[in-house]
Nucleic acid binder design. Sequence first.
DNA 1: GTCTAACTGAAAACGGTTATCATTTCGAAA
DNA 2: TTTCGAAATGATAACCGTTTTCAGTTAGAC
Lengths: 138, 138
Amino acid sequence: MTARPPAGAHRATRQGRAIVAALRASPSFRSAQEIHAELCAGGQKTGLTTVYRHLQRLADDGAVDVLRQPEGDVMYRYCASDEHHHHIVCRECGRSAETDCPELSDWADRVAHSLGYSDVSHAVEVFGVCADCRAARR
Amino acid sequence: MTARPPAGAHRATRQGRAIVAALRASPSFRSAQEIHAELCAGGQKTGLTTVYRHLQRLADDGAVDVLRQPEGDVMYRYCASDEHHHHIVCRECGRSAETDCPELSDWADRVAHSLGYSDVSHAVEVFGVCADCRAARR
DNA sequence: GTCTAACTGAAAACGGTTATCATTTCGAAA
DNA sequence: TTTCGAAATGATAACCGTTTTCAGTTAGAC
Ligand SMILES: [Mn+2]
Ligand SMILES: [Mn+2]
Ligand SMILES: [Zn+2]
Ligand SMILES: [Zn+2]
């Protein structure tokens, strides 16, 4: 009886490394299509499907944060922190910064419970214009 | 010279009234497709395109609030208040309640400015399980 | 009643994402 | 080092909510 491998681990591939590298190199949230285009342009041939698959798994594993823009596109960013936190995203260039949110969690819990809701979670995104973009404007 | 009408006002139609009525009657956020199905089931023949058009205009006019669910579908709800506010949405049935957010605005402004961002806006949705759904569970 | 811009809705187009499936590749075990 | 099955890949097609198109209908000002 040939005891087969555990079957469940991730395998190291050129494409996976390239996708993680692209995410790590960017201070902004990026879409699957942007990453795909970037890899192709840089000579790293990779299927769009594969990019989607890796981003999805990275998100499931909690390695990247997912942001759904007001327009609907889903964007990903490699996060410095693995704690729960939120982002401030530049409306013009996409650059984002992270911030924690103790007061926010308290507020959400308090309000939700007072209205009879349990199992509370919250989604917060703050948008603005970053210093660079403001300078470039004028 | 026949002075033509102002050209810009909205016209009263059976379909428009039905859509507004459906929104007003619901305490939950509803999708365009849900509203369309409801109208058709109730004998109010209406094109899906028309539902989308009315919801879009109502949203532009600020008469309804727009919520993009984590899964991506866009949902609409007729709002009681025209002030800036946020929602607590039941993950199971969609029922929502409104809440204001003075502390939240302060938090967002403070954090954003400290990171160099201006023209700050924020999007917040709180999710939970409402009392009815919690009761129905067990 | 006339007239025109607003409105309607069936059908086709759109665009991002996911499913399919034949093929390739990784890597644990032999 | 060779083997071999699960994991990964990627071209293609399907999906699905939404938007566009366009020919026909209708509200409502005159
Ligand atoms: Mn983050
Ligand atoms: Mn509201
Ligand atoms: Zn910027
Ligand atoms: Zn509920």
